[in-house]
Nucleic acid binder design. Structure first.
Length: 222
DNA sequence: ATATGATCATTC
DNA sequence: GAATGATCATAT
């Protein structure tokens, strides 16, 4: 058990201390067993870094560093330093969305303050050899806030109007709504096209790679 | 079923 | 190759 960081400077210090290390090194140091691949342990990297940095364990709906209000996101990147995957943000509410504002949304709360931790994670690189990059704290600037808000409002309006079945990953410029479930048979409550209650596949909000690519660029080549 | 952590794998 | 849809583990 590692104590949570008490301030941002301490968190930065911990992040800087692991930059350049491989996941294998870090796992060994903290008694984690590195899997051969992530097929059955997709969250392994995130959980290792949570532990090492002293994030609160558990699956509570809180920021990873409650005292600091900071959310930790690992970000798999290519040799070119570009994101290899979209970034999951939060489960999307599909009922009781009337009157909900972006500022009250889980998306905004999650993205208000993020610690991005890039991981060189090309699939040809064994997990044990993947290298941790330079993590950094980020908050959306005015333009990013506006982009996120625009997409969130468009997607949430469709949900509110009972158009969830028409939503697919194409909608949204930087934020998209996609399945987030154990499998394609999972069901959750949603609003139907006539305002009735229906059952549908649970969805989540994800940041498109274009958006996280921009965040990385603004951090590393300003 | 929901929420945490995401990546896999098929499609485009 | 990039992006969408599907999926995996664990805890509550």
């Amino acid at each position: 058990m590692i104590s949570p960081p008490t301030n941002l400077a301490q968190l930065r210090q911990r992040v800087d201390a692991i930059a350049g290390m491989t996941l294998g090194d870090l796992a060994e140091q903290y008694g984690f067993k590195t899997p051969e691949h992530l097929q059955r342990e997709k969250g392994w990297v995130g959980q290792l870094l949570e532990y090492v940095l002293g994030a609160s364990a558990g699956s509570l709906p809180e920021p990873d560093f409650p005292a600091l209000g900071v959310e930790l996101k690992t970000l798999p990147i290519s040799y070119q330093g570009t994101p290899l995957e979209t970034t999951f943000v939060s489960v999307a509410p599909l009922t009781q969305v009337t009157g909900l504002s972006f500022e009250q949304s889980t998306v905004y709360k999650k993205l208000f303050h993020v610690l991005w931790l890039p991981i060189l994670a090309e699939r040809e690189i064994p997990v044990v050899e993947r290298v941790i990059g330079s993590g950094f704290l980020w908050q959306p600037d005015a333009q990013q806030f506006a982009q996120l808000k625009r997409d969130w409002e468009e997607l949430t309006e469709m949900v509110a109007l009972g158009q969830i079945e028409q939503v697919n990953g194409h909608f949204g410029e930087v934020l998209q709504l996609r399945p987030k479930a154990a499998n394609s048979k999972a069901l959750t409550a949603a609003i139907g096209k006539n305002g009735e209650r229906i059952q549908t596949l649970p969805r989540g909000f994800y940041l498109k790679t274009q958006f996280t690519r921009q965040i990385l660029a603004q951090q590393f080549q300003p």
